[in-house]
């Protein structure tokens, strides 16, 4: 009993406080110290865990999305894919189908369906073709055999088309040839217009 009291007093004296209340305060501080370290450790661990979780999940996310272009809506948006394939297929069939009598209509259609480089290209082709079509009474029918959308955004699409083209001179036998086209199309005001045509 006496030993304890002496120790207390000695401690109190060393820490510069006096009396029993000072000793109690010191004991509280001494007891709190490890507790606070424990809390800090917990906080640090929590922080590390949270950061690791966040980082890990973000890596997992990028792996899930790996390899796919998120902007390419070809096939993922079935409606839009069908629309562009249909519009471009119809346009190609229309601009490459004519008889000597419907040549003007075809040209008018082409003005609506083509734009930019494709329009210029078509004009040049048409200027060369028109006299021969009239003279030799040539007709051409283009059937779209298959259409595939290579890539598609809200405004631009690349489309691959396999065509059968049957040409016929008046009095001659029709002959059919295969053709493959890569077409670039742009959407303007809800309709797709062809801006580039490349034979494959």
């Amino acid at each position: 009993m006496a030993m304890t009291t002496e120790t207390k007093d000695a401690d109190a004296g060393a820490s510069g406080t006096s009396g029993a209340s000072g000793a109690r305060a010191h004991r509280r501080r001494a007891a709190r110290k490890p507790k606070r370290t424990g809390r800090r450790l917990t906080a640090a661990l929590l922080l590390i865990c949270l950061l690791a979780t966040g980082g890990g999940l973000l890596i997992a996310t990028s792996q899930l999305q790996d390899g796919a272009d998120p902007n390419n809506k070809a096939l993922t948006d079935a409606g839009a894919t069908g629309n562009v394939a249909g519009d471009v297929g119809n346009a190609v069939a229309r601009i490459f189908t004519y008889t000597p009598d419907t040549l003007d209509t075809t040209r008018q259609d082409a003005k609506e369906l083509l734009r930019g480089e494709a329009a210029e290209q078509y004009d040049r082709l048409f200027a060369r073709l028109a006299p021969r079509v009239a003279e030799q009474q040539i007709s051409l029918t283009t059937n779209v055999i298959r259409t595939g959308v290579v890539d598609l955004t809200d405004t631009t699409a690349h489309v691959l088309l396999f065509l059968d083209q049957t040409s016929e001179r008046k009095g001659g036998k029709p002959s059919t040839a295969a053709a493959q086209l890569s077409v670039t199309a742009e959407q303007h005001g809800g309709t797709w217009q062809i801006t580039k045509i490349k034979a494959r």
């Binding site: 966040g54 890990g56 999940l57 973000l58 996310t61 899930l64 999305q65 796919a68 390419n72 993922t76």
Partner: peptide, 23 residues
């Protein structure tokens, strides 16, 4: 962590992302 979780959840449940990858 929450951001990572929601991104992951969205990607894991995004059929169109998986479909695009297959395409």
């Amino acid at each position: 962590a929450i951001w990572g979780g929601t991104s992951w959840y969205a990607a894991a449940n995004d059929d169109s992302a998986a479909f695009a990858k297959s395409r």
